[in-house]
Design a protein around this nucleic acid. Structure first.
Length: 297
DNA sequence: AACCTATTCAACCGCTGTCGA
DNA sequence: GTCGACAGCGGTTGAATAGGT
């Protein structure tokens, strides 16, 4: 959506303000400003954002120029709905790294840290709120890992099977099938890893290995369960079964459910629409609340 | 139609890390 | 070692919009 066009040229509240003796524009960018910035970066490349502002005459801070470029004007920036694969990847990487948005964004080509952060805050935190638990709580993280992510995987697989004749929409990066030749989740099209990164990521649900890096310890509060695939099985047409019993939280309770029956009974497989909205419908929310209640008792 | 509330997301702010002088 | 400039990150804000009454 071209928000800029809809929202018009700057807000009355943010028009200009004085900073260090010069007028600094704030608020939404105009088409002319976008054009100016785009032109400058096309010629001179990214970086030296303060000089961008100086050289172009844009009454914006260097920070603002950088942000506008990265989040909006960059040619490879991808806009629109976050796909199921991307949702799954965000959940997985967030479970590993916590709020390291820029790091997570590195693994979602075309997505910005801002977009991922907004996605997390508006969608994921909303669900935590509905479940009346903290988004950083172990209960919620387990709910994500043992309910939400498996269901996303199942749905991705279902969509992949139904669209098996259609061409995939891959990026120019290496497919995860190269990393995970045994992958059977249907993630071989969009879920891909940028091989230019020095730290290739293998998701928990395929070949999860807990990171020992300090980055993973503080914010992320990563669960002690290292490999999700060891914790549950998804049998097409069968039961989702917790096998581990060595972890904690929901897993310890021997969480067991019949996903297909739940999904077909409440329309989770309805196709189209937002995965989270359909995934976290009233019935599933109630079910999870029961699980969380059992967990707490 | 008018109003109210919730949601979304672009943009801002403050802080930290890095690098060169 | 320190200082200043700059880039980048994550948290937060608030205008626009959608949905409900």
């Amino acid at each position: 959506m071209e928000v800029q066009a809809i929202r018009g040229c700057g807000s009355a509240k943010h028009d200009t303000s004085s900073e260090e003796g010069m007028d600094i524009r704030r608020g939404p960018w105009t088409d002319e400003e976008d054009f100016t910035l785009k032109g400058y970066v096309t010629i001179h490349g990214e970086g030296r954002w303060n000089s961008v502002a100086r050289c172009t005459g844009l009454k914006r801070t260097g920070k603002s120029c950088r942000l506008r470029w990265l989040n909006y004007l960059r040619p490879d920036v991808k806009r629109g709905n976050i796909s199921l694969q991307e949702q799954l990847l965000i959940l997985d990487l967030h479970s590993r790294w916590g709020n390291r948005w820029s790091k997570i964004a590195q693994y979602l080509p075309g997505r910005t840290d801002n977009e991922i952060k907004n996605y997390w805050r508006t969608r994921v935190q909303k669900q935590a709120k509905q479940l009346k638990c903290d988004v950083n709580s172990k209960q919620f993280r387990d709910a994500m890992r043992y309910v939400w992510m498996p269901r996303l995987m199942e749905r991705i697989r279902a969509e992949s099977e139904s669209n098996s004749d259609e061409p995939t929409t891959g990026y120019s990066t290496q497919s995860t099938t190269d990393h995970f030749p045994n992958n059977s989740t249907g993630l071989n099209s969009s879920y891909q890893v940028d091989t230019s990164l020095s730290e290739p990521v293998e998701p928990y649900f395929m070949h999860a290995v807990l990171s020992d890096s300090p980055a993973a310890s503080s914010e992320a509060q990563v669960s002690s369960i290292s490999d999700l695939s060891e914790c549950y099985n998804i049998v097409p047409g069968g039961n989702y079964t917790d096998n581990s019993l060595n972890g904690s939280g929901l897993c310890q309770k021997g969480l067991e459910m019949d996903i297909p029956s739940l999904e077909h009974s409440n329309g989770w497989y309805g196709g189209g629409g937002d995965a989270l909205d359909s995934l976290w419908n009233d019935e599933n929310t109630w079910f999870l609340q029961q699980q969380l209640y059992d967990y707490e008792v």
